[in-house]
Each structure stands twice: as C-alpha cells, then as structure tokens.
Design a protein around this nucleic acid. Structure first.
Lengths: 220, 220
DNA sequence: GTGGAGCTCCGTGTAAATACGGATGAGCCG
DNA sequence: CGGCTCATCCGTATTTACACGGAGCTCCAC
C-alpha cells in the first residue's frame, strides 16, 4: 500500500492508556501525523477549533461529551473533517448512532497499524471503512442501513504537476514565473490553474490557497 | 494582529502532556520560538541561566520548586525576563501570589494560540495580560490590587476596516463585491487592498491570505 | 489647533487572472 | 487495441488585480 498524503489526525479518548497505545501504533507511520489529543468530546471540539486535522479518531463512549454528540457538532462546524469511531467491543447500537452522526468509519480498539492507516486514508478520500473484525450482527445492521460502504464523492486528486503549480502559486509566483521555473508555456500553467480551480471549487486563487492549506498541500 | 518580533520563550510545567500541547499551539507561530523546557522551578532557573528567553510561561503548581518561588528568584536574578503564570483552573489566591512575585501575565491552561501570542507580546512590550476566561472573583482581586490590568497595544498594523476587507477577501469576494457589501466605492476597497499588501509585504492576494491565516486574522 | 491616523474617493495605466473554446501526444491498463 | 488520464499547448475575450499618483474628511491626541 502506498499513499501520497501525510494526514493530520487527532485522537479523542478518555483513557490515557489507550491514547499512549495509539501513539505507539503511529510510530514509523509517517503518513499519519498526530497533531492533538482530547479526553472527551468537548476537548475534541476545542482541539479542532485550533488545529485542522484531516481525520479524527473518536471514542464513542466518553465523559463530558460522548463521541456521537461530538461527531454531530464537528460535522456541523467543520464539514470537511473525517471522523472514525472507536469502540472497545462491538457496541452495535452505538456504532450505528455514531455513523448516523456523521462518522465515515469505525474501528475496534484492538486494531492494528495497517487498519489504522487504511481507515484514515479511505475516509480521507471520501470512502467509508469498517473494522475487519466487525461483528456479523453489526455487518447486517450496516448492510440494511444507508451506511452501506460506497464512495460518495470521488476524491479530489491532484496530479504531480498540479501539486507543483499549487505550491508555486502559494509562494506568490505569477503564472509567468511558474512557467519559467517549470519550463512550460504560460498558457499551460493557465490551463492547469483553471483545472485546479475547477477541482477545488474555488472562485479564485485565494480560495485555492485556502484549500491547499486546509488539505495540507501547502504548509504555512 | 501583527507583530514584528520573534520572541524566545521557555515553558515550565511538570506535566509532559501539557508541554506537548503547548508545543502544538506553537506550530505555525513563527513569532514565538520555544528554546527550552523545564519540569519545575529549579530546572527553569538553570535553563534561564544558560539561555536568554524573552518570556517564560510558568506553571504555578510544580514539584521541587513552584512557580511563585521560581518567579521571585527569576525577577531578582534576571529582572528583564517577562513571566506569565499558568494554572489549570482559576486558582485565585495562587494567581495573585504569582503576580505579586513578579509575573506580568496569567493564562488558564486551556488557552489558545491567539491568547498565547497576545500574552507573550503584551508582557514583552511592558504590559500585563490576563486570560480572557479569568474568573470574576479573580478580576475583582486584581482590580483591588496594584496589578490593575491595562494593555499596551502592540503597534496596530491593521485598522478595523482593513481587517474587515482582509476577511472578506479571504472569503473569495472580489473588490467589487466587497465594495457592495461594505457600501464603499470599489476604488476605496482597492486603496485598502494596496495598503494591506504594502503592510504585509505580500506580492499578491495569495501572500496576503497566507499572512492573514498565519496571524489569526482569518480562521480556516 | 496642529498633526497624525484612519477612512474615504478618484484617474490612469499595465499586468495578471479568469473564462470560454479547442487540440495533440505519451503513457497506462484492461 | 481502445479508453483513459495527464501534460502539454493555443486563441480570444473579459474581468480583476496591481501600481503609481493625488486629495478631502473626521476624529483624537498632544
């Protein structure tokens, strides 16, 4: 498996032991960068307020504010965030609630680093992911519900060239300067820029750079 | 908000978790450079002995030597250092002690990067800064004491109008749309934009929006 | 009551970006 | 092979942005 992104993630769980174990799983996993931890849903909301994670791993059962409520609020306030529910065992009803609240994935806590990475990447790209160890009962519940795994929106993927151009644009180079630097015609650069605007849905280069920053294409 | 310094800061707190969170808050905050950490007051004194921080963020409650004692000793030995007290909740009496010991600011630990930066800059420029979430009780205590809050305003680079326009630009409005929304002539908006570009040193609107995001003028 | 800062407005340009249309070849994959 | 994406290039036109200049007004502080 090969991924081209580095995803910023956060973990919300009330047990420090689990958070530590989670961090151990992230060792030597450069594709996932843990940028914050929360002990409950309230802290998670505060955390997301100041950070900008791509994916949040959220325990369903937490004090103060549980994962389901946190998920609902997160999706309202930060529609772009991708949420993966966590539960200690197959707490079927709660998992379904979590998915209805907007989570796009679900993992049992005794997961492994492979699943962790796969789940994060899948939901980030617009898909859904369920723990392989998901109980038959939960599988049937999901199968019957609207949460059947499918890819909603094709992920916005940028070609290498487009990524280059986005980054150079973010460095305040003009189309002409980018063309010179990349040995391209300025018209080619303009074409790429148009495609980028179209893909990101941005109205102008400002929207594009915000998109780029949000999605980690450009680091500030 | 715009600051022209890069402040060297240190953090003293006995909880590694908090220090890590503190460091997260400093991400993308080029104005604050963390040059050292200490786990207690004693380590803090040793640290300041060999480093020269502009501002020290010091937890009040620490083992070995608490923040209050550390603050007193620091102010005696290094009168130029600026100290901001930290506490997990409104521990009113201790906060007052900390301020009497020479701290020029006080922050609750669940602060944000905006407050962090503002507090650091304010005390560095000779002012005092208290956490916005400071309890009413503490406010009264401070009000009665010699530590009457006042704020030295750092050189304000952006006027209210300019800030408005920056934020609308970040929302991908064109000059014309901004003019309409603010009931201004488009030429006025263009003038403001030119001033903003000049102030930020940005080459175009992309540089400006990156500046705005970096400095908390626009939240993404 | 002078001076500065902020806000407002304007003229005249050039440079750049945005928007629509189109095309060709290379490379990959089933 | 056939279909696809990517990268490359182009024409034409309009809209915005950027850059340089100047000026009058209010408000407030010194």
């Amino acid at each position: 498996m090969n991924y081209k992104y580095i995803l910023k993630i956060v973990i919300a769980d009330d047990h420090q032991m689990f958070r530590e174990g989670f961090k151990v799983l992230l060792k030597n996993q450069p594709e996932l960068e843990l940028i914050g931890e929360a002990e409950n849903g309230k802290e998670l909301l505060e955390l997301v307020e100041i950070q900008t994670p791509h994916v949040a791993f959220v325990d369903i059962k937490m004090p103060v504010m549980d994962g389901i409520e946190a998920c609902k609020r997160l999706k309202t306030k930060f529609p772009d965030i991708h949420i993966i529910g966590l539960s200690s065992y197959n707490d079927d009803n709660l998992v379904v609630d979590m998915l209805e609240a907007g989570a796009k994935g679900y993992l049992l806590k005794n997961t492994n680093r492979q699943e962790l990475l796969e789940a994060a990447m899948t939901v980030y790209e617009g898909g859904v992911y369920y723990s392989k160890a998901t109980s038959d009962k939960l599988s049937r519940m999901i199968g019957k519900s609207k949460f059947n795994p499918y890819r909603i929106h094709p992920p916005v993927i940028f070609s290498k060239r487009e990524t280059d151009i986005i980054q150079l644009m973010c460095k305040q180079l003009t189309n002409r300067e980018i063309a010179t630097q990349l040995n391209l015609s300025i018209r080619t650069v303009e074409s790429h820029r148009e495609n980028i605007l179209q893909k990101t849905g941005a109205k102008n280069s400002i929207g594009m750079v915000i998109y780029a920053i949000k999605h980690g294409i450009y680091e500030i």
